Simulated scan of single mutants.
Amino acid sequence: MARAPVTEALLAQVAAVLDDLPETRRERAWTGTRWVVRGHNVAHLFGGEDGLVRVTFRAPMDEVAAFEHLGHPYFRVGRSGDVVGLVLDDDPGVDPAELSELLTESYCVQAPGELVDRVDRPAT
């Protein structure tokens, strides 16, 4: 089965959050698109062979288990580490403010402190 295509709208939604963060670079990944800061993955947007589009991101370790227990549309990537994922193409879709918060937090997990200090974090 072919991988689900990432729509321009989903790519634009993720890029709107990540492209302007300090020293973040968008690049082609083995599949889909990823964003990195100083060589560290911040997020990876891709279509799966099951027809669903996902974004993976980093979360503070004390929040990883919470995402895992929330269940769909969230999922944990692997059994260790801080990588979490979110299915993006379910109806009615993900809240843009929530996605912005998750991606910004992922950046703050991965970026060095001097870059994090330059980021306006969404209010929670």
Rank of each mutant, 00 (worst) to 15 (best):
M1S: 14
M1Q: 10
A2W: 01
R3L: 15
E8S: 14
A9V: 12
A12E: 14
A16H: 05
L18F: 08
L18W: 07
D20G: 13
P22A: 01
P22R: 03
P22E: 03
R26T: 10
R26I: 04
A29C: 05
W30N: 10
T31V: 11
T31N: 13
G32T: 01
T33K: 04
H40T: 13
V42I: 15
V42T: 08
A43S: 05
A43G: 01
H44D: 02
H44L: 15
G47D: 03
G47A: 04
G48W: 08
V53E: 00
R54F: 11
A59K: 03
M61Y: 02
D62K: 07
A65F: 06
A66T: 13
H69G: 03
H69T: 01
L70M: 12
G71M: 10
H72Q: 11
P73R: 08
V77K: 04
R79H: 12
G81R: 04
V83C: 02
V84K: 02
L86R: 07
D89R: 04
P92K: 11
P92I: 12
G93R: 06
V94M: 12
P96W: 08
E98K: 14
E98W: 12
L99M: 11
L99S: 01
L99G: 02
L102E: 01
L102C: 02
T104C: 05
E105G: 06
E105P: 11
S106A: 08
S106T: 05
Y107T: 06
Y107F: 15
C108V: 11
C108M: 13
V109A: 01
G113H: 11
E114Y: 15
E114Q: 06
V116R: 11
V116Y: 03
V119H: 04
D120L: 12
A123H: 12
A123I: 04
T124E: 09
T124A: 14
